[in-house]
Amino acid sequence: MSKYILKFEKADSVKYVSHLDLIRVFDRAMRRAQLPMGYSQGFNPHPLMTFAHPLGVGVSSIGELVEITTAEHLQEKEFLNRLQEFMPVGFKLIDIKEIEGKNNFARLTSADYKINIEGKFPESDLVKSFNKLKEILIDKKTKSGIKETDIRPFILSFEGNMGVYMARLKTGAENLKPELFVKALEKYIPDFSPEWVQILRVQLNDGEGNSLF
Protein backbone atom coordinates (compact mmCIF):
# COMPACT_ATOMS: atom_id res chain seq x y z
CA MET A 1 0.00 0.00 0.00
CA SER A 2 1.18 3.53 -0.81
CA LYS A 3 -0.24 6.87 0.27
CA TYR A 4 -0.56 10.08 -1.67
CA ILE A 5 -1.92 13.51 -0.94
CA LEU A 6 -3.60 15.19 -3.88
CA LYS A 7 -4.46 18.84 -4.06
CA PHE A 8 -7.49 19.59 -6.19
CA GLU A 9 -9.85 22.26 -7.36
CA LYS A 10 -13.63 22.08 -6.97
CA ALA A 11 -15.00 24.69 -9.34
CA ASP A 12 -18.23 25.76 -11.03
CA SER A 13 -21.28 23.57 -10.47
CA VAL A 14 -19.48 20.76 -8.68
CA LYS A 15 -19.28 23.06 -5.66
CA TYR A 16 -22.80 21.71 -5.01
CA VAL A 17 -21.51 18.14 -4.77
CA SER A 18 -21.67 17.24 -1.09
CA HIS A 19 -18.73 16.04 0.96
CA LEU A 20 -20.17 12.52 1.27
CA ASP A 21 -20.63 12.23 -2.49
CA LEU A 22 -16.99 13.21 -3.06
CA ILE A 23 -15.77 9.81 -1.89
CA ARG A 24 -17.83 8.14 -4.61
CA VAL A 25 -16.57 10.60 -7.22
CA PHE A 26 -12.95 9.68 -6.50
CA ASP A 27 -13.61 5.95 -6.03
CA ARG A 28 -15.39 5.70 -9.37
CA ALA A 29 -12.78 7.80 -11.15
CA MET A 30 -10.08 5.46 -9.79
CA ARG A 31 -12.02 2.47 -11.13
CA ARG A 32 -12.53 4.04 -14.54
CA ALA A 33 -8.85 4.90 -14.68
CA GLN A 34 -8.04 1.31 -13.67
CA LEU A 35 -5.86 2.63 -10.87
CA PRO A 36 -5.41 0.23 -7.92
CA MET A 37 -7.51 1.79 -5.18
CA GLY A 38 -6.71 0.53 -1.67
CA TYR A 39 -9.65 -0.87 0.26
CA SER A 40 -10.19 -1.57 3.94
CA GLN A 41 -10.35 -5.19 5.04
CA GLY A 42 -13.56 -6.78 6.25
CA PHE A 43 -17.05 -7.66 5.18
CA ASN A 44 -17.86 -4.25 3.72
CA PRO A 45 -14.62 -2.94 2.24
CA HIS A 46 -14.52 0.80 1.72
CA PRO A 47 -12.03 2.87 -0.26
CA LEU A 48 -9.12 4.19 1.80
CA MET A 49 -9.55 7.89 1.29
CA THR A 50 -9.52 10.84 3.68
CA PHE A 51 -10.32 14.47 2.98
CA ALA A 52 -8.53 17.17 4.95
CA HIS A 53 -11.67 19.08 5.78
CA PRO A 54 -15.25 19.11 4.53
CA LEU A 55 -16.22 21.97 2.27
CA GLY A 56 -19.73 23.40 2.61
CA VAL A 57 -22.17 22.71 -0.20
CA GLY A 58 -21.99 25.67 -2.56
CA VAL A 59 -18.45 26.72 -1.59
CA SER A 60 -15.82 26.26 -4.30
CA SER A 61 -12.13 25.64 -3.72
CA ILE A 62 -8.72 25.77 -5.35
CA GLY A 63 -6.99 24.12 -2.41
CA GLU A 64 -8.73 20.89 -1.41
CA LEU A 65 -6.67 18.02 -0.07
CA VAL A 66 -7.39 14.32 -0.19
CA GLU A 67 -5.26 11.42 0.96
CA ILE A 68 -5.65 8.31 -1.19
CA THR A 69 -4.17 4.90 -0.42
CA THR A 70 -3.38 2.70 -3.39
CA ALA A 71 -2.89 -1.04 -3.44
CA GLU A 72 0.28 -0.68 -5.53
CA HIS A 73 3.01 1.95 -5.71
CA LEU A 74 2.52 4.53 -8.46
CA GLN A 75 4.67 7.28 -9.95
CA GLU A 76 3.31 10.59 -8.60
CA LYS A 77 2.97 12.40 -11.93
CA GLU A 78 1.58 9.38 -13.77
CA PHE A 79 -0.99 8.85 -11.06
CA LEU A 80 -2.11 12.46 -11.17
CA ASN A 81 -2.32 12.64 -14.95
CA ARG A 82 -4.09 9.33 -15.32
CA LEU A 83 -6.67 10.12 -12.62
CA GLN A 84 -7.28 13.60 -14.03
CA GLU A 85 -8.36 12.11 -17.34
CA PHE A 86 -11.20 10.29 -15.61
CA MET A 87 -12.45 12.99 -13.22
CA PRO A 88 -15.78 14.68 -13.93
CA VAL A 89 -15.64 18.25 -15.29
CA GLY A 90 -15.02 20.77 -12.51
CA PHE A 91 -12.48 18.69 -10.59
CA LYS A 92 -8.93 19.69 -11.43
CA LEU A 93 -6.01 17.89 -9.81
CA ILE A 94 -3.30 20.44 -9.07
CA ASP A 95 -0.55 18.65 -7.21
CA ILE A 96 0.44 15.31 -5.75
CA LYS A 97 2.88 14.16 -3.09
CA GLU A 98 3.65 10.70 -1.82
CA ILE A 99 3.60 10.58 1.97
CA GLU A 100 3.92 8.24 4.89
CA GLY A 101 2.48 8.03 8.38
CA LYS A 102 -0.93 8.60 9.85
CA ASN A 103 -3.06 11.65 10.66
CA ASN A 104 -1.41 13.75 8.03
CA PHE A 105 -4.12 16.36 8.28
CA ALA A 106 -3.84 16.80 12.06
CA ARG A 107 -1.76 19.98 11.61
CA LEU A 108 -4.67 21.75 9.92
CA THR A 109 -5.38 24.97 11.80
CA SER A 110 -6.86 27.55 9.46
CA ALA A 111 -8.15 28.15 5.95
CA ASP A 112 -8.07 31.16 3.64
CA TYR A 113 -11.24 32.19 1.87
CA LYS A 114 -11.87 34.63 -0.91
CA ILE A 115 -15.36 36.06 -0.62
CA ASN A 116 -17.10 37.90 -3.45
CA ILE A 117 -20.22 39.81 -2.58
CA GLU A 118 -22.74 41.77 -4.63
CA GLY A 119 -25.49 43.76 -2.98
CA LYS A 120 -25.99 46.87 -0.88
CA PHE A 121 -22.88 48.11 0.95
CA PRO A 122 -22.52 50.67 3.76
CA GLU A 123 -20.76 53.97 3.09
CA SER A 124 -18.24 53.41 5.87
CA ASP A 125 -15.37 50.90 5.55
CA LEU A 126 -16.92 47.51 6.14
CA VAL A 127 -13.64 45.76 6.93
CA LYS A 128 -12.50 48.43 9.36
CA SER A 129 -15.76 48.46 11.32
CA PHE A 130 -15.88 44.67 11.47
CA ASN A 131 -12.30 44.31 12.64
CA LYS A 132 -12.95 46.82 15.44
CA LEU A 133 -15.56 44.54 17.03
CA LYS A 134 -14.48 43.01 20.36
CA GLU A 135 -17.16 40.38 20.43
CA ILE A 136 -19.12 38.73 17.60
CA LEU A 137 -22.05 36.67 18.78
CA ILE A 138 -23.62 34.23 16.34
CA ASP A 139 -25.77 31.10 16.65
CA LYS A 140 -23.32 28.31 15.99
CA LYS A 141 -23.71 24.55 15.91
CA THR A 142 -21.66 23.03 18.73
CA LYS A 143 -21.47 19.56 20.23
CA SER A 144 -24.30 20.46 22.58
CA GLY A 145 -26.63 21.90 19.96
CA ILE A 146 -27.01 25.37 18.53
CA LYS A 147 -25.54 27.95 20.90
CA GLU A 148 -24.83 31.66 20.69
CA THR A 149 -21.05 31.78 20.43
CA ASP A 150 -18.44 34.52 20.26
CA ILE A 151 -16.69 33.80 16.95
CA ARG A 152 -14.19 36.68 17.27
CA PRO A 153 -11.34 34.30 18.24
CA PHE A 154 -12.07 32.18 15.14
CA ILE A 155 -11.42 35.07 12.78
CA LEU A 156 -7.67 35.31 12.28
CA SER A 157 -7.68 38.01 9.61
CA PHE A 158 -10.10 39.88 7.38
CA GLU A 159 -9.22 42.35 4.65
CA GLY A 160 -10.31 43.65 1.26
CA ASN A 161 -12.77 46.13 -0.24
CA MET A 162 -15.27 46.78 -3.05
CA GLY A 163 -17.01 43.46 -2.52
CA VAL A 164 -13.87 41.33 -2.74
CA TYR A 165 -12.51 40.11 0.59
CA MET A 166 -10.03 37.67 2.05
CA ALA A 167 -10.60 35.97 5.39
CA ARG A 168 -8.47 33.55 7.34
CA LEU A 169 -10.71 31.46 9.59
CA LYS A 170 -9.92 28.76 12.12
CA THR A 171 -10.45 25.36 10.55
CA GLY A 172 -10.21 21.88 12.01
CA ALA A 173 -10.85 21.04 15.66
CA GLU A 174 -11.73 24.69 16.19
CA ASN A 175 -13.74 25.66 13.19
CA LEU A 176 -15.69 28.52 11.66
CA LYS A 177 -17.56 27.98 8.43
CA PRO A 178 -17.22 30.83 5.92
CA GLU A 179 -21.01 30.86 5.41
CA LEU A 180 -21.38 31.73 9.10
CA PHE A 181 -18.72 34.40 8.79
CA VAL A 182 -20.76 36.10 6.05
CA LYS A 183 -23.82 35.88 8.30
CA ALA A 184 -21.86 37.64 11.03
CA LEU A 185 -20.93 40.44 8.61
CA GLU A 186 -24.57 40.83 7.73
CA LYS A 187 -25.59 40.92 11.37
CA TYR A 188 -22.97 43.38 12.61
CA ILE A 189 -22.54 45.79 9.70
CA PRO A 190 -25.41 48.27 9.39
CA ASP A 191 -26.74 49.06 5.89
CA PHE A 192 -25.13 45.96 4.45
CA SER A 193 -27.32 43.43 2.62
CA PRO A 194 -25.58 40.91 0.37
CA GLU A 195 -27.67 39.63 -2.55
CA TRP A 196 -25.17 37.33 -4.18
CA VAL A 197 -22.25 35.69 -2.39
CA GLN A 198 -19.53 33.46 -3.80
CA ILE A 199 -17.03 31.81 -1.49
CA LEU A 200 -13.79 30.24 -2.61
CA ARG A 201 -11.49 28.26 -0.34
CA VAL A 202 -7.97 29.18 -1.40
CA GLN A 203 -5.70 27.28 0.94
CA LEU A 204 -5.60 25.04 4.01
CA ASN A 205 -2.92 26.09 6.52
CA ASP A 206 -0.94 24.63 9.41
CA GLY A 207 -0.37 26.35 12.77
CA GLU A 208 2.23 28.73 11.30
CA GLY A 209 -0.15 29.85 8.60
CA ASN A 210 1.76 28.00 5.89
CA SER A 211 0.12 25.81 3.30
CA LEU A 212 -0.49 22.34 4.74
CA PHE A 213 1.00 20.63 1.69
Binding site: V14, Y16, R28, V57, P88, V89
Partner: peptide
Protein backbone atom coordinates in the same frame (compact mmCIF):
# COMPACT_ATOMS: atom_id res chain seq x y z
CA UNK B 1 -31.98 20.50 -0.13
CA UNK B 2 -29.74 18.33 -2.32
CA UNK B 3 -28.70 20.98 -4.88
CA UNK B 4 -26.88 18.27 -6.88
CA UNK B 5 -30.33 17.40 -8.28
CA UNK B 6 -30.32 20.59 -10.29
CA UNK B 7 -26.80 21.14 -11.60
CA UNK B 8 -26.25 18.60 -14.41
CA UNK B 9 -22.61 18.19 -15.47
CA UNK B 10 -22.47 14.58 -14.29
CA UNK B 11 -19.97 12.19 -15.82
Amino acid sequence: QKPARYIGGEL
